[in-house]
Design a protein around this nucleic acid. Structure first.
Lengths: 207, 207
DNA sequence: GAAACAATGTTGTCAATGGAAACATACTGC
DNA sequence: GCAGTATGTTTCCATTGACAACATTGTTTC
């Protein structure tokens, strides 16, 4: 179990803090994550985390970064360059929701951390990789003529908005008996239909 | 300015706490809202809020409730029974985003509060009223044949997901030069197109 | 191999916070 | 007027994040 045979006092406090921190985060959100409580769990003094993370936010940022790396990897696997646009986008959506269901509190914190004014550059970079996968799917879809023309970034944002909302709903859990799996399918399907190329596109709606 | 001429010690501490609390919330999120800080601002002792709100969460719940009432009213005005389905849905979307831009931290907190396991019943009821407006628009749209058939609740959830995502994006603020106003139009337009009735609907996508 | 050095962890301390109990004051209804 | 209640105060406690000074362990250099 122990990755390192205990090179130092504790061994690998930093990783242990990340593990325990994520556990605490998932069971009660950010306010439930206490540096002192983590220290107690790990059997170290209450200031030792400071050696690895300048403050609580630094630990959260590190957790968020790790989260984005895993999310990016999961989306990357799901969005592999195979199949039609519809299939790829559906798989991407399912992967996103799957991650959200497994790590709801982490994902919420990730989003918060990214939106902070002084968010670390690495975090922003990692979060953009997720969008990059979506972007690639759209570019490929346009090349095949499966998606309406236009700035792929803009279209990806449309899809991203829907996925984000999907996640918000899925974290909610139950929809009065609705099957989440079916709901994902329906949302992505509607999204795909709305993105199909058309001869004439109606006006932009009310102004 | 002062609503009541000062009937008691402070006058209307409860309302003052709500006002000051929302201000604090909008400038720094939940962790920035300190009961003691509020008390200082209002010139009362640090435990007086307890007479009106059992704990910090109770104050947050009250703020969230008030927020949902205002949001519901705004959506209700926007979704008035006039115009086509497209126009109504677009107006609803714009109203939602407008609210999100005016009260970003409040809206985020509202969502959190609603998802808490022990969220007060009133809060859930108030939040469902917002969805109710969307639902009404869909029911009317189906009656006119502007929307594909199906459970209106389910379809409203699809739209709600997209709007929720729209809000998540809009709170972000800037999209590398994209105009938010145009983006709203585009998202709602795509949503509408995807919801149009069709003769044959393709499969649900990858499983 | 020993001394300088850096990395890691500890002890002690502080201010701020949320929360609780006991007490004081101002309004209200009778 | 007077009892009762709503509102606000004073005092106190445990927890938390953060900081400084110190101790210990491992590494590097001669």
């Amino acid at each position: 179990m122990k990755a390192s045979p205990r090179p130092y006092h504790h061994g690998s406090l930093r990783e242990a803090l990340l593990r325990a921190g994520e556990r605490a985060l998932e069971s009660g959100g950010v306010p439930n994550l206490s540096l002192r409580e983590l220290s107690r769990e790990l059997g170290v003094s209450h200031t030792s985390p400071r050696r690895h993370f300048a403050d609580k936010q630094a630990l959260l940022d590190a957790l968020a970064l790790h989260g984005y790396e895993r999310l990016g990897a999961a989306l990357g696997r799901a969005a592999k360059d195979e199949g039609t646009f519809d299939v790829r986008l559906t798989k991407l959506g399912r992967a996103y929701v799957s991650f959200a269901l497994k790590h709801p509190a982490l994902l919420a914190m990730m989003s918060e951390a990214k939106h902070r004014l002084d968010a670390p550059r690495e975090l922003l970079e990692a979060s953009e990789k997720a969008l990059a996968h979506t972007l690639a799917i759209f570019a490929a879809g346009q090349a095949k003529g499966a998606v309406v023309a236009g700035d792929p970034l803009r279209l990806a944002l449309v899809a991203f908005a829907a996925l984000q909302g999907l996640v918000a709903l899925s974290t909610n859990g139950k929809f009065k008996g609705e099957s989440l799996d079916d709901l994902i399918g329906e949302i992505v399907e509607r999204l795909i239909l709305g993105l199909r190329p058309r001869s004439a596109v109606r006006g932009r709606g009310a102004r």
